[in-house]
Design a protein around this nucleic acid. Sequence first.
DNA 1: CATGAATGAGCTTTCATTCAT
DNA 2: AATGAATGAAAGCTCATTCAT
Lengths: 212, 212, 212, 212
Amino acid sequence: MKPTIHASVKDEKLIALRRSQLINGAMSLFKQKGFHRTTTREIAKEAGFSIGTLYEYIRTKEDILYLVCDSIYGEVRTRLESVITSSDGSLQNVIVAMSNYFKVMNDLQDEVLFMYQEVHSLSKESRKYVLQKELDMVRMFEVLLSQCVKNNVASLTETEVKFLSNTIFVQGQMWAFRRWVIQKLFTMEEYITMQATWLTEFIQSKGTGVNK
Amino acid sequence: MKPTIHASVKDEKLIALRRSQLINGAMSLFKQKGFHRTTTREIAKEAGFSIGTLYEYIRTKEDILYLVCDSIYGEVRTRLESVITSSDGSLQNVIVAMSNYFKVMNDLQDEVLFMYQEVHSLSKESRKYVLQKELDMVRMFEVLLSQCVKNNVASLTETEVKFLSNTIFVQGQMWAFRRWVIQKLFTMEEYITMQATWLTEFIQSKGTGVNK
Amino acid sequence: MKPTIHASVKDEKLIALRRSQLINGAMSLFKQKGFHRTTTREIAKEAGFSIGTLYEYIRTKEDILYLVCDSIYGEVRTRLESVITSSDGSLQNVIVAMSNYFKVMNDLQDEVLFMYQEVHSLSKESRKYVLQKELDMVRMFEVLLSQCVKNNVASLTETEVKFLSNTIFVQGQMWAFRRWVIQKLFTMEEYITMQATWLTEFIQSKGTGVNK
Amino acid sequence: MKPTIHASVKDEKLIALRRSQLINGAMSLFKQKGFHRTTTREIAKEAGFSIGTLYEYIRTKEDILYLVCDSIYGEVRTRLESVITSSDGSLQNVIVAMSNYFKVMNDLQDEVLFMYQEVHSLSKESRKYVLQKELDMVRMFEVLLSQCVKNNVASLTETEVKFLSNTIFVQGQMWAFRRWVIQKLFTMEEYITMQATWLTEFIQSKGTGVNK
DNA sequence: CATGAATGAGCTTTCATTCAT
DNA sequence: AATGAATGAAAGCTCATTCAT
């Protein structure tokens, strides 16, 4: 399932170390210049080792892109999971999750932006794997919303649940994608408030399970 | 203001013709392989002329990207303007504009997607110019909504107007960005209906100017 | 003998006119940027006609170089001949010729410099023809000096005559070649006076035919 | 002061080796076809390595020209210095230096010719540096002549010393520049003898310090 | 006779990747 | 396991020359 990047080196711990150096170096350069404008030589230098060593831990330049993208999603997930531990099936719970998600998107703006621009440079297989992680995140909101429905806090069809999850996800991305527009119009707090209001009103307009 | 692309050829009509061939050829390739993976030679061939001729109409490869991006936004605007000529300040008016916008996004999915991925390869100046066009589109919805407010059809604060415009814009993009998911959930008609319902309810929940 | 440049156009007068425009335009550009850095397009533009027209009067870019080089030597000769019409076999006569030659070198510094740098880009045949003209000029001084010998004004061996002719020629070129240095040391007049003094003393030291 | 050519390779000894191969290969081609007609690929091949390797040791084609020009002047200097070690302030001394200089010019005809034709293709900075070396050589003769003046062997003004130095220098160059003319007229020995005679007579005509 | 759009061979330069040390 | 010199395919771009109008 998860694409494995071949390394010539055997020592697993060393691989982990070198790859983390590699990812940090590459990410830093990618944010500045994009994937195509960054050379493997530059990446090796930034990571702190030689071009020869670099190729002991990867097979192609694309591998680096995959490693970086994977790492970004890992980071996003880690941050979100540390926040969304328990779900009590309340609307408030969804809103808290959403605002945490927005905050993560704010922290990782450059990374998110970069990934969106460069995923299409991945091989089909890697791209599929990486995009699956995106789906996982949307699913997270789906679960939260479904619990609201179960709890009779919201009366939504499955389709509506999926729509809302996707909307939340996209609105989070947009904070990064369209930052030069959107971040001039609203502060993070305002944005969160507005999105929360919108979400609440959308759900309320559908009624609650109790009233049905 | 608008970046001008230098051509060695003088005949303006010929320039227009060749550039349109160029844009079509390039767009077709860009959608398949992205900007960086497409060579100038391939573009020339696809456009139907030689590499020498190509460079009679542009100066650098980046010029082609700019031409293509500009053309995409031009296409979007043309399609929208042909519909939103008169604004009577009714809610219906906003909804018609929005659904037309969604349809355009549907028709130009690949183009919109491509542009978001590659704008960052433009020079600062060109990028600024192209992104300004995005703002113009959001502004369009702002104007329509403001007229509803003026007409006492809706009672919205300025921030709310901006929020709604942005949301409409993003929901349109979502149709293209998350097509794999969204387009499995809804047909275009269903999507439009849902968005219209939501918009109407949001505005009604704020009351009309009359009741205030 | 003299390489002929093919023209598609028949009208001889027109050829002469266009070629003179061509030479002027090209010379002006060559002095600034050299032969290789100047494009045929630029030459056509500077000459005042289209690239198509340019190629009605020449066959290759090298033809232009030949035309220009030929023109330079023609100019030098014309200027010199207008002065050295009659030779009375006096030493004074040689000195007048020499100082006129120096003045011509002064006027045509850029052209002479250019020619020395670019003759090697001519075809073997053209190069030979152009360099022959250099020989002609040296020969001119030889003739003048030989007449002094005949007139018993100077007593020089044939080798000495050749040596003096060459030296005069080189001293003239030096004024152009090493202008940054030489022209700071002397004014044209001072240079002429010095060279005249030297020449006179050299010849006098050899004695006159009469005394032998 | 001295322009430095960037190399991607670190090993200084290797740089020196490869550059000397490069200079030899390039010089050989430049003498045949000139700088502009020689391609970087040809140079790499002639030097015995790949085009990629070539660019590990230089940044641009112009760098090669600079390296070659610098090398030529280095060669000239080395050869001269090995001969003109001690100066005793005699006229004979100047003449020996001069004839050695002529011999060097004879040995390095192609190189000297090439350099004179192509220096103008160097960047301003490099050109300045290279031409400075020319000045240094002229200065060498100035020093020798000045010592004659000091020794009362010759009575020359400073201007005359400079003029003579430049003349010697130019006459040396002319042996290379105008070889097809001059080398048909005179052998190297004859040329040297004549130049020596001329120099001696010029100086004697000015008198010696003693007689003044 | 004049025009200028079209052509494509050929140029310089880059950079992912390999492999001997 | 680490190094970095070597490689060459391939890219973007230029420009002398042609030829239909």
